[in-house]
Amino acid sequence: MKKKLIALVVGAAAVMPAVAMADVTVYGRAHVSTDFLDDGADYSETNISSNSSRLGFKGDHQINPNLKAFFQIEQQINFNTGESDGGENFATRDTFVGVAGTNWGAVQLGRFDSPFKVARGPANLFGDQVGDMRNLTRVGNARFDERYDNTVQYTTPSLGGFNIKLAYSVYEGQSLVVDENHPDYNEDSDAFSASLNYAAGAFEGSLAYETAESNTGRGERDGLRAAAAYKLTDAFKLVGFYQTVEYDDSDATAVQRDLWTADVYGLGGEFKFAPNTAVKAMYMTRDADANNADSDMWVVGIEHKLDKAVRVYANYALVDNDDDVALTPWSQARTANPGDADASGEKATGFSVGLRYDF
């Protein structure tokens, strides 16, 4: 089914008149790495990983001088296996349609990254790589780095470098579920996310809040996130990160609520010692409410851009766990996530050499 759908999309694009395709862009990312992963106990193996690789179509249409329509369809593609994620679905990543005005901002509807998720951007030095910050921020059912179904989002115009994103997900799945035995069910299956963003000169920062009700897929939770980056010089950038998440779903056990309620702090930097080459490093710590369930992560890496589209890199990351937690530096945004690794109370490490090609 997936192959037929892709063939249909490509075939339709090939026969469309050139004028109809003028504002449609086909884009993507092939991001693959070779990783040596060690859980500190019994697992120590080499893997090939596809890291949030994707294929997408996007475009816009100018309705009048002050109004345009836009769309995007995006699918994850695993370049190490030749498969796409999401079963029979094609649009598993950010997929939406919307309208934008010159003076009033933009409104979009669909399934896409929440403002809270996007807000990590200023401090995201190792996104989709070994050492991604989500290995500490996206834990258990308290995770917030999500795309929500059935979402409407409003983005304000930029004003002095500031903008605001407001997103509301009305429910998950194809249609709203009505439960006559629990009449409040419909009211408890939504999520709200908002961010205040600023970028001007040497500074970039985001402050975000998100809340999900009890009948969303992972239960009731609230989170606050702040991320910032400041260029001290043209060559050196300093980044900082903070997140606090409260997981208080009534269906969870007290142990689960304490394990998943946590504060995360991070500090890092990037230094360009050549025009296309940079070294990066970051330290993060996760402080859980539960006793003996904290984790620290250290990441160092070097990245070289061969040109605007292609880059290569090498990273080393370590997560040091307390006895009652088993986080790793490789579990997020990557296909190489071995299920038989167990880093409980261990120092889990990952060494990765990667190639990323944006097209």
Score class of each variant (00 low, 15 high):
residue 6 I to F: 08
residue 8 L to M: 07
residue 15 V to T: 14
residue 16 M to G: 08
residue 23 D to F: 02
residue 27 Y to F: 15
residue 29 R to C: 11
residue 29 R to S: 13
residue 33 S to T: 10
residue 35 D to I: 10
residue 36 F to I: 11
residue 37 L to N: 11
residue 41 A to E: 15
residue 42 D to M: 08
residue 47 N to Q: 15
residue 50 S to F: 08
residue 54 R to V: 07
residue 58 K to R: 14
residue 59 G to Y: 02
residue 61 H to W: 11
residue 73 I to S: 10
residue 78 N to V: 08
residue 78 N to F: 08
residue 80 N to W: 03
residue 84 S to Q: 14
residue 86 G to K: 11
residue 89 N to K: 13
residue 94 D to T: 04
residue 96 F to K: 06
residue 98 G to L: 09
residue 103 N to T: 13
residue 104 W to D: 03
residue 107 V to L: 15
residue 111 R to C: 10
residue 112 F to Y: 15
residue 113 D to H: 14
residue 114 S to E: 11
residue 117 K to P: 02
residue 126 F to R: 06
residue 129 Q to P: 03
residue 147 R to E: 04
residue 149 D to R: 05
residue 150 N to V: 00
residue 150 N to E: 02
residue 162 F to L: 13
residue 168 Y to C: 02
residue 170 V to A: 13
residue 171 Y to S: 02
residue 173 G to F: 03
residue 176 L to D: 11
residue 182 H to A: 12
residue 183 P to A: 11
residue 184 D to L: 09
residue 184 D to Y: 03
residue 190 D to H: 11
residue 191 A to Q: 01
residue 201 G to P: 01
residue 206 S to C: 05
residue 207 L to K: 02
residue 208 A to D: 09
residue 214 S to A: 15
residue 219 G to K: 05
residue 225 R to Q: 15
residue 227 A to Q: 05
residue 230 Y to N: 07
residue 235 A to V: 04
residue 242 Y to L: 11
residue 245 V to E: 03
residue 248 D to M: 00
residue 250 S to C: 00
residue 255 V to M: 09
residue 257 R to N: 09
residue 265 Y to R: 01
residue 265 Y to T: 04
residue 268 G to F: 03
residue 269 G to Y: 03
residue 275 P to Y: 08
residue 278 A to Y: 04
residue 281 A to R: 07
residue 282 M to Y: 04
residue 287 D to S: 14
residue 290 A to V: 05
residue 292 N to Y: 04
residue 293 A to R: 06
residue 296 D to A: 12
residue 300 V to K: 07
residue 301 G to C: 09
residue 302 I to H: 02
residue 303 E to I: 04
residue 306 L to T: 05
residue 309 A to G: 01
residue 310 V to H: 07
residue 311 R to G: 12
residue 315 N to Q: 09
residue 324 D to Q: 10
residue 326 A to G: 11
residue 329 P to D: 03
residue 329 P to W: 02
residue 340 D to L: 10
residue 343 A to I: 06
residue 352 S to E: 13
residue 354 G to A: 06
residue 354 G to L: 05
residue 354 G to H: 07
residue 359 F to K: 10
